[in-house]
């Protein structure tokens, strides 16, 4: 090694140094232009893209989470609403049913009472008619029998009282 340094006939191998230096610099420039530049640029672009994609994915996930939460909420609400509607309808139906039944009951009651009243009235009318007829008949009979001019009204009240006794007796029987 010493010979290499010294034995250059008094000359240092500066030429080699220069040659190495220049070729190294040229190599660096060529590598930078043809390979290093494009590749590092692409690597930077890729890392940027990846971080951008990751950010985008985060955002999208947050949005999807929010959406699904909202949807779940809406679903829960709609279920509750549906239950409420069904309950309401059931209640409505129940109350309507009760009302209808009550109406029907009361109407039937009315009809019955009316019918009873009618029957009663008819019965009384018939009784009245019968009483009148019997009174007149008996009056006529009596007038004919007794031939005594009797006051028709007195006679009638007398007969009524008889008939009443009669009916009372009949009913007790």
């Amino acid at each position: 090694m010493a010979s290499l340094l010294v034995l250059g006939a008094g000359k240092l191998a500066l030429g080699d140094m220069l040659f190495i230096l220049i070729s190294f610099i040229l190599l660096s420039l060529a590598v930078k232009h043809y390979a290093w530049g494009p590749v590092t640029k692409m690597m930077d672009a890729r890392s940027e893209k990846i971080s951008g994609d990751l950010d985008y994915a985060d955002q999208e996930r947050a949005r999807a989470d929010k959406l699904s939460k909202e949807r779940e909420e809406a679903l829960k609400n709609s279920r509750a609403e549906a239950i409420e509607i069904v309950n309401k309808a059931k209640d409505n139906g129940d109350s309507q049913k009760k009302a209808i039944v009550a109406d029907a009951h009361s109407e039937a009651e009315n009809v019955r009472t009316k019918a009873k009243q009618d029957a009663e009235k008819a019965k009384q009318d018939a009784m009245q008619d019968a009483q009148d007829d019997i009174a007149n008949l008996s009056l006529e009979i009596a007038s004919k029998v007794i031939s005594k001019e009797l006051n028709a009204d007195d006679q009638k009240s007398l007969i009524d009282s008889y008939i009443k006794e009669l009916t009372v007796n009949n009913e007790t029987k």
Binding site: L12, A13, D16, F19
Partner: peptide, 10 residues
């Protein structure tokens, strides 16, 4: 140019 070049090295 007054510089010494070692052909093998260069």
């Amino acid at each position: 140019l007054g510089l010494r070049f070692n052909v093998a090295n260069d």
